[in-house]
């Protein structure tokens, strides 16, 4: 049977990808960001997933303002890294697991979560940066070392789905994966965050205390974390901090009790607080 053995939370700051692509991760500015990922890569190597179910948001790449699906699951055979205006990131094409993806789509829709199905989709830094963080430097033509099922969540136009809705969707994804007959080791990623505001006069807002409390709550008291409302996210963590609802999808797919094996928090990467968790699921 397929099993979810771990949940991973990770910011997807584009500048992290740029730093890796330009080979400047040992510069003093970046060194503390990447030091916190050293353990993660080693852990990932030792706990290699067959499939990563990757919850992320698209940054008007696959979806411009004309189409805004709240939840869209990638069921394609592969997903090409998109040109976001500076040329595509020099990383491998992302390969999907089509059978598992369509099984999850079917199961979750019958479970009353109405997903949009994407049979063709380009992916942006929101998806490729967390893969780079966990799998290290990979060049075009290489293999990522895992198959990936993307789930794009709208967090650009208000309202994003609620934290509670995301948490419950995570539970439905768990049920779907648990009922898949192939023997697969699956990791689920919740990406984005942490506190950051990219726009207007309050740009640069960071709330480290809130972020740390959120991580504690997510790990140990998910029932409290899923009750955080949108206005709290917007006010306390900046307009783009709302991305953290995606961490709730990840958390919902895990057991009530999990083991936190790694935590990393650093300010700043560009305009953003970087947060990262590895949670082992005992299923």
């Amino acid at each position: 049977m397929a099993r979810i053995t771990a949940g991973i939370a990770c910011s997807h700051v584009p500048a992290i990808g740029v730093a890796m692509d330009q080979g400047i991760t040992d510069q003093p500015y970046w060194q503390p960001v990447f030091k916190g990922f050293e353990f993660s890569r080693k852990w990932n190597e030792e706990n290699k997933p067959d499939v990563v179910f990757l919850v992320y948001n698209d940054h008007c790449t696959a979806f411009d303002a004309s189409v805004i699906p709240t939840f869209a699951i990638g069921c394609a055979a592969d997903f090409t890294p998109a040109d976001e205006g500076f040329g595509p990131r020099p990383v491998p094409v992302v390969k999907g697991h089509q059978k598992l993806a369509s099984h999850i789509a079917q199961s979750v829709i019958l479970d009353e979560f109405d997903l949009t199905i994407m049979n063709e989709m380009e992916v942006d830094h929101g998806l490729t940066v967390p893969l780079s963080v966990m799998f290290g430097d990979r060049k075009p033509g290489d293999d990522w070392g895992t198959l990936v099922i993307p789930l794009a969540v709208n967090v650009v136009q208000y309202p994003a789905p609620t934290a509670n809705r995301c948490y419950n969707l995570g539970k439905a994804i768990r049920r779907a994966i648990d009922s898949y007959p192939e023997d697969l080791n699956v990791h689920i990623y919740g990406t984005g965050g942490m506190s950051h505001q990219l726009q207007a006069e309050r740009a640069g807002l960071i709330n480290a205390e809130w972020d740390q409390n959120f991580m504690d709550m997510l790990v140990n008291e998910p029932d409290k974390a899923r009750k955080i409302d949108h206005v709290e996210f917007l006010r306390e963590t900046g307009s783009e901090g709302i991305e953290m609802v995606m961490w709730l999808v990840m958390r919902g797919a895990l057991d009530e009790k999990v083991t936190e094996v790694h935590r990393h928090y650093h300010v700043p990467a560009s305009n953003t607080a970087v947060g990262h968790l590895i949670l082992e699921n005992h299923g």
Partner: peptide, 10 residues
């Protein structure tokens, strides 16, 4: 500098 020092305060 503000960002390196921890960002804009809440």
């Amino acid at each position: 500098k503000m960002m390196v020092e921890g960002g804009r305060k809440i």
